[in-house]
Design a protein around this nucleic acid. Structure first.
Lengths: 262, 262
DNA sequence: CGTCCATTTGATTAAGCTCAATGGACGTGG
DNA sequence: CCACGTCCATTGAGCTTAATCAAATGGACG
């Protein structure tokens, strides 16, 4: 909750101390940005916008006009099969960038909706051109973050393809936890999923019923403890069960272009 | 087979007609490149290298020093679970770029090996810096191709998460077919998998035995016909069964920076 | 002609799905 | 305050898909 910043501070332009943008915050988590780079990005970023729960950010087939940085809430991307089954492809938590993928297509390859009420910062697609032209380091950073997302997706692919329900769910919980920590900084904070069991099933390729049984099983085994919405995890054991690796630590910036005027 | 180019032609430098590089060929499939852009890229590209079947391109945990463009053969990226099970994350066919993901990490997140004898063109990682600095349009293109790969991975995630063996396999066959066509150009050419059933199982999250039964079933139903290694597909029916979409058609280049001196 | 490897087939088992019912939490309207 | 509806979690019973275990078949090749 303390993550929600006062919106009026965004959009000041001049000195670095005053630049307070979602994108700058996200990007500089991985590599330091020069003042002019930070200024360029924060200038491009539009006013944060509030979305209602279940509001569609971009439907499959529409054109995605901007990236969105998640400031608060949860969103996800999914596809529906002919028989009505649903696969959720990617979850977005505070700090994540929505649309790094679909922005390169003329039509979105999947639908994106908010799972909860959410605050998103749009970043216009056509302004990316300026980023690639004037701030190659930032471009490299955006590229790297896109690839980081891909690694996370592939970890989940492995879990769905080759693990049983118990390990899949453990893997999922740890992934959400590590993702929350990027934004939240407090490593002791309990996990707050804010997703119902049907949604989790659609992420993991399981039915809601089986997700429920598996949660119960993990609870019986003392691996998780649930207290109204929040969850405490036995991280060490779960990590072992799910063979989980946290991918959010570090990217290799050695090949990045240097900031133009540092 | 006709895809294998005479290697001596690569590396000439001067005029456009003589530039004959794997990377240039791949990238200009999606957007026209200026002469200087083409020159920059082809100059960076090193001599094609031949790999033996089962030769490791980059092991999990090592640093990946270059991208590789596949000229001939098949390769794949995989992860092994503690109990020995294997999940193949991505297959690479001629025209694909290996390493767009792992290049942004200090250590590879997965192992990559050749499934057959293969010819690959390395493209040094640290030279990417120059590309991002001097050829922003090419950088955008590389970004877009990385995202295209991600969409393909997510289509497979959907298949593995929410489809049965029959549809999964159909989906897989169509994906390989459409991928082959990027490199091969002949739309009537029969599908040449050159992968055994165990490998296919590890792609699709199925056992080798079940892959076999499913192949047999597709064959009985007249949806595929197998003649020593090659395969003819009833594309229309299979596309319907697998709800398949070909993602290789088109990316949105409208936001790309323009070539610097066209 | 025997070895190696991949494919094929059969019999049995188990993980997860489907269908169905119950109960708690919460909001809304009378 | 109570009645009611909705959403979600929970639990049970039976069924289906794919896994497992095991073995046979069939090239390709030295």
């Amino acid at each position: 909750m303390s993550q929600v910043q006062t919106k009026s501070r965004i959009r000041e332009s001049a000195s670095r101390a005053e630049i307070h943008s979602c994108v700058v915050e996200k990007l500089s988590h991985y590599a330091p940005l020069s003042d002019s780079e930070a200024r360029l990005i924060s200038r491009l970023e539009e006013r944060p916008r509030t979305f209602k729960a279940n509001e569609v950010i971009c439907g499959s087939g529409e054109e995605l006009g901007s990236l969105f940085i998640v400031r608060e809430g949860r969103a996800y991307t999914y596809q529906i099969l002919g028989d009505g089954r649903r696969q959720i492809l990617q979850l977005y938590y505070p700090g994540d960038i929505i649309g790094t993928r679909d922005i390169v297509f003329e039509q979105c390859t999947a639908s994106t909706v908010c799972a909860t009420e959410a605050v998103l910062c749009p970043f216009d697609k056509k302004d990316l051109k300026e980023v690639f032209e004037k701030a190659p380091k930032v471009a490299a950073l955006i590229y790297a973050i896109g690839m980081l997302e891909q690694v996370v997706v592939l970890d989940r692919l492995k879990a769905i393809g080759r693990m049983q329900a118990r390990e899949r769910l453990a893997h999922f919980l740890l992934e959400v936890l590590s993702r929350s920590r990027v934004a939240c900084h407090d490593p002791a904070a309990p996990l707050e999923l804010r997703l119902n069991q049907e949604t989790i099933g659609d992420v993991l390729g399981l039915t809601q019923v089986h997700v429920n049984r598996t949660f119960k099983q993990l609870e019986r085994d003392g691996l998780i403890k649930r207290v109204n919405g929040k969850m405490e995890l036995q991280e060490a054991e779960l990590t072992h069960i799910a063979e989980f690796t946290d991918r959010y630590h570090r990217i290799d910036t050695s090949w990045f272009p240097v900031s133009r005027e540092d």
